[in-house]
Design a protein around this nucleic acid. Structure first.
Lengths: 346, 346
DNA sequence: TGCATATCTGAAAACGGTTACAAACTAGAC
DNA sequence: GTCTAGTTTGTAACCGTTTTCAGATATGCA
């Protein structure tokens, strides 16, 4: 245990340097760019590192290098299979390339989202992953002022000047509605998620509507209900729709959770799906194929979407060329919950 | 636009200080402890701050103060309603007290967990929230060496020297099994989660077993199956159990997801629940009350549990007195999936 | 008014790394 | 043996805050 200098250091890179008999610069290099240091030094430094159990101090590193190798993500809520999946996938990818993820939630509140963005920027994130393109106007300014790269995920808007990756929700919804129209349905109800501050939800409603209009079908206003993201609310909506004198024979839903609610409530109220009522979801969560009857829905590769978002930012930060607008394909998955309408109601 | 000094600064606390005509020390104080600065200075500083759109640089702050107001959490996976709930609740609480959460996942791998802990410590977290008390042996040393406070969540082990908060899983499982025993079942199967590296799962199995033993019932080894956390695996287990010549009349499950799988598979195979088979879950996730038949299960206040974990760490860090072992009560929720066994099989 | 005491404020040294720059080597060519 | 170019290493300034310490200013009281 050799004395080093007058003032010996206990922790940190200086302690490692002292123990290995090199300068802090070399230790730093050995850590960040091993090839920049000769093999002999490298092993000496590595020995010193694990002899001391040295753990680099990320904040100091960030301060000094102005890069954190950390991305931030702001999602409405984590308590939702869709986002949980996406985040899990993003996190998995990021850790594979040596990045970390700072995750925060906004609760569908744009002010909170802005605040969280400030928070994340303060934390020194290198880039930001945002849900959709519906943000507080201060957010764009904040991102621009601080030169923080970002990407909107879960939507596809090639005409907008912001990077995004996701499926074309309008087209997906159109496909879903077209499916029940092809089956012969003429009275089609919509149970959508709340459209306020949710461009994904609105795009889907737009797609549903366009399909109906193109087929010359009317969408009565009482056949369109908006509900929050819970099974209970969806069930209530179903109860209302099925209670109408002139009820729809098919219901297209803004997402799978809503569809589950509609399906459960229909069955509980004595309607048989798909004999009496057809139901279509959107997202294709796990439950969709397990439920009885299983749910016809639009499959969306959520994991891939979020991973691509991560790739976009990591590549941009590395100075590589990247695609600004990337579309992720959806597909219609036909299962048991849809069938032609009953003769009597046709 | 007054020139300040020879070298004028664009960003950072110095820019604010220059603009407000004060020292950086005062700006820092105005930010961290507003009462320590006179009202007149405070307003001048606040004006300068939002005139410049100044955002404090957290890493610098952490480096200098050696506190990050950030907690780390390592969960097996985020893609699981239980954890998603817990995390959401923890995050909500933390943000209410000005803390942030760094979330990482281990995928049920103790080595990865250790690595993530190192990662989080490197990031400068003030404390760590861990799942259960089943960790890599290097983890305890790491935590001790770096003096990082932590808490094991989701379990209750008053006899261990580590802080924890959670329900008594053994007792909960005992209650679940006792319920079907009270209903008259004598042939009781167990479908548990994988016990390896999962003390929660093992405690539940222990509880099931104790209940059986106390009632003088035998647990045949072929009536106990372990499955990963997916609906598909649980369904397969159910298929196996129900295919046995001498099948159980009731199945107690390690968690709700497993119970869903058993329930779905039973119904799909033509068994009626609870007439032909009783099923009990554990956790009481959302789906349990929506499913048909709804699921009898053990309610666990996950949100409260994780929030308490956060409270424990925040309070400890503030130097307050805290309770090291906190038990969170569970309760049995009887719904439609349990009933006395069929006469013929009694 | 003078003095002790409490309250505010500022100068400057950390905090633990990275990195520009310079110095010291090394190897190859003449 | 000298010179050049290339490689490896070290020195020290800097990243943007907090915080100690001391000086300045205000307050209370005799």
């Amino acid at each position: 245990m050799g004395l080093t200098d007058a003032k010996s250091v206990k922790h940190g890179i200086r302690a490692v340097a002292a123990r290995a008999g090199v300068s802090t610069a070399s230790v730093s290099r050995a850590l960040n760019n091993p090839d920049a240091v000769s093999p002999s030094l490298r092993v000496r430094i590595e020995q010193a590192i694990d002899a001391l159990g040295y753990i680099p101090h990320a904040p100091a590193r960030i301060l000094s290098s102005r890069r954190s190798r950390t991305l931030g993500a702001i999602v409405p809520t984590i308590d939702n299979t869709m986002f949980a999946r996406g985040i899990a996938s993003l996190q998995h990818y990021l850790s594979s390339v040596g990045y970390m993820l700072f995750l925060t939630t906004s609760g569908y509140d744009l002010d909170v989202e802005l605040q969280q963005a400030r928070n994340l920027i303060s934390r020194g994130v290198d880039g930001l992953v945002l849900r959709g393109d519906c943000h507080h106007e201060g957010l764009r300014k904040l991102l621009a002022d601080n030169a923080v790269p970002f990407i909107n995920v879960g939507i596809y808007q090639p005409d907008r000047p912001y990077p995004c990756v996701g499926t074309d929700n309008e087209a997906g919804a159109h496909r879903a509605a077209a499916h029940v129209i092809e089956l012969g349905h003429r009275r089609i109800g919509i149970v959508s998620a709340l459209q306020r501050n949710n461009d994904r939800a609105s795009a889907r409603v737009a797609g549903f509507r366009r399909a109906l209009t193109e087929s010359g079908l009317e969408l009565r206003s009482q056949w369109h209900v908006e509900v929050p993201y819970t099974l209970d609310d969806a069930r209530e909506a179903a109860r209302y729709l099925l209670g109408l004198k002139d009820r729809p024979t098919a219901v297209v839903c803004g997402n799978d959770v809503i569809a589950y609610g509609v399906l459960l409530e229909a069955e509980r109220s004595g309607f048989s799906v798909p004999r009496d009522l057809s139901v279509v979801g959107f997202d294709d969560l796990d439950w969709s194929r397990h439920l009885r009857p299983s749910l016809t829905t639009i499959y969306v590769p959520t994991g891939e979407t979020w991973q691509r978002a991560g790739e976009y930012l990591v590549r941009s930060l590395a100075g590589e060329q990247t695609i600004m607008h990337r579309e992720i394909d959806f597909s219609l998955v036909v299962r048991e919950s849809t069938a032609p309408p009953p003769k009597s109601l046709k």
